[in-house]
């Protein structure tokens, strides 16, 4: 272990990624987060728009926040001190898409099979369900 390494290990404030942090970025990320989450909650609670148009709006908020937080809170970039954060993000994104995507697919398919009025079994046995 080199001396520089030693120093970094004992003094957390000397870590380069800590040095990069700025109060302005933290505060703006915090305000953005609370603000957008609050608006989302408000819209949902008051039923301001129909559920169908609510989902894309909230999803857009969420995606915007994700990007804003990763830039402002985590300071994602490819510099030496931050590269592992970016690598973890690159690992997480496929997993995220995989788990959410496959879940949407399976529930969409399930919904179609068990909830639709033209479900094959339903019309064959009207008696059992009435």
């Amino acid at each position: 272990m080199t001396d520089a390494h030693h120093h970094a290990a004992t003094d957390p404030l000397a870590h380069p990624e800590v040095q990069q942090a700025s109060a302005a970025a933290y505060i703006s990320a915090y305000v953005l987060t609370v603000g957008l989450l609050g608006v989302g909650l408000f819209m949902t609670e008051r039923h301001l728009v129909t559920p169908h148009s609510l989902i894309p709006v909230i999803a857009a908020f969420a995606i915007f926040l994700l990007v804003a937080q990763s830039l402002l809170f985590l300071g994602l970039d490819v510099s030496h001190s931050n590269i592992w954060k970016t690598v973890s993000l690159m690992l997480t994104v496929p997993l995220f898409i995989l788990s959410i995507g496959l879940t949407v697919w399976m529930f969409h398919s399930l919904d179609h099979l068990v909830m639709s009025p033209e479900m094959p079994g339903m019309s064959l046995q009207p008696g059992t369900l009435q």
Binding site: L95, L98, S99, L102, M106, S109, L110, L113
Partner: peptide
């Protein structure tokens, strides 16, 4: 990461899933 539904095949998500 891509196999978890095998714990509830019987949910009936359909043949493709």
């Amino acid at each position: 990461w891509a196999v978890w539904l095998h714990h509830f095949f019987t949910m009936g998500a359909g043949p493709w899933v």
